[in-house]
């Protein structure tokens, strides 16, 4: 299927662009290529001065610095102090950091975060790719995708609340469903240390599998048709085609999907807060949830800052990897064809 959106500009817009540039559309396509990356001004006398651009960049950068960079340095400051609202902050000789070393909830939080992410990712990627493959060949792709992506629009906290209600062990329909199917025994899914993690994973899978479907579908439209056809001519079956051509072409897309989801697991704990709040017996207290408790339940802002910095550190590393993937030749080649 040809996509109408060519690198962000719809075809109609391209026509407009051509009109504005006073050339025919074909000329326009030829002279500009369809995708122009990091376009450099070609003629020097027409290029506006750098100062003009500086004025355009500055407001956003200043605002952003005020609301992110300033808090970031404040965070570092807090992590070295005993934060006290009334008496003022006191230097406490790395006590916040030293406490992290012996803090079992901290280590446990990281482990649970990894476990939670791994469980989510395995299920979401598995389901998402499977569904994308099916949808890609389905007549009803458009309708089904639109229906499937509805959960993403729901506020995560509302999703958490609705699922909390449905999981309820006395009147929840999902609880009834699981018990009737003989899955759960007598237990309530969120009330048991063994199953609570599954409870929160299911909500995440429900809400975010559609994102993997969307990304994979977009990736599948980029798989070069000539490769597929060539290999079919050579006698490869559909399975072989899928595993040797489609799937390798999807890797960059899946990598992006996984990284984004992984970082979202760091960012969003809304659903978990209302579903379990980290319980029972800390079995779902993944690190961000623990951080929330330390900072906003016990108001240990200094210790919270130290934990937050470890979380930020890992996020930045993940971000660096993500940007590398964005820029990798594989990622670009796949974006080019359409």
């Amino acid at each position: 299927m040809q996509t109408t959106l060519t690198n962000g500009i719809a075809d109609g817009q391209l026509t407009n662009a051509a009109k504005l540039a006073n050339v025919s559309e074909d000329q326009f396509r030829m002279s500009n290529g369809v995708r122009v990356i990091d376009y450099q001004p070609t003629s020097r006398h027409a290029a506006p001065s750098n100062r003009y651009y500086l004025w355009l960049i500055l407001p956003a950068v200043i605002v952003l610095a005020c609301i992110t960079l300033y808090p970031f340095f404040w965070l570092i400051w807090m992590s070295f102090h005993k934060v006290d609202v009334l008496k003022g902050d006191v230097w406490n000789n790395f006590a916040n950091w030293r406490r992290l070393l012996g803090d079992r909830s901290f280590g446990n939080g990281w482990l649970l975060l990894l476990k939670y992410s791994a469980m989510c990712m395995l299920m979401e990627v598995g389901l998402g790719v499977l569904l994308a493959v099916i949808l890609n060949r389905s007549k009803y792709e458009k309708v089904l995708v639109t229906l499937f992506l509805m959960p993403m629009m729901m506020a995560p906290v509302v999703a958490g609340l609705v699922w909390y209600y449905l999981y309820n062990s006395t009147f929840g329909w999902y609880h009834w469903l699981m018990q009737s199917a003989g899955i759960l025994g007598e237990k309530s899914i969120l009330g048991d240390t063994g199953t609570a993690m599954w409870g929160i994973v299911l909500v995440d899978v429900w809400q975010w599998t559609p994102l993997i479907i969307l990304i994979t579908l977009a990736g599948m439209k980029r798989v070069p048709r000539d490769q597929l056809e060539a290999s079919m001519v050579d006698g490869a079956g559909e399975w072989r085609n899928f595993f040797q051509i489609t799937l390798p072409n999807l890797y960059p897309f899946l990598l992006i999907a996984i990284l984004l989801r992984f970082m979202d697991n760091f960012r969003f704990i809304d659903a978990i807060l209302v579903l379990t709040g980290g319980g029972p017996a800390n079995s779902t207290k993944i690190l961000p949830t623990y951080l929330f408790d330390v900072s906003f339940q016990f108001f240990k802002l200094g210790r919270g800052a130290a934990i937050a910095l470890t979380l930020l550190f890992v996020t930045i590393i993940l971000g660096l990897i993500l940007v590398k993937v964005f820029e990798s030749p594989a990622g670009k080649v796949n974006q080019e064809g359409s």
Binding site: F266, A305, L312, G319
Partner: peptide, 19 residues
């Protein structure tokens, strides 16, 4: 710029609340 977008909300909120 992109890293500020990816920063975990819980982590940013501690200092932002103080400020």
């Amino acid at each position: 710029i992109i890293s500020t977008r990816m920063a975990p909300v819980v982590a940013v909120m501690v200092p932002l609340y103080a400020i």
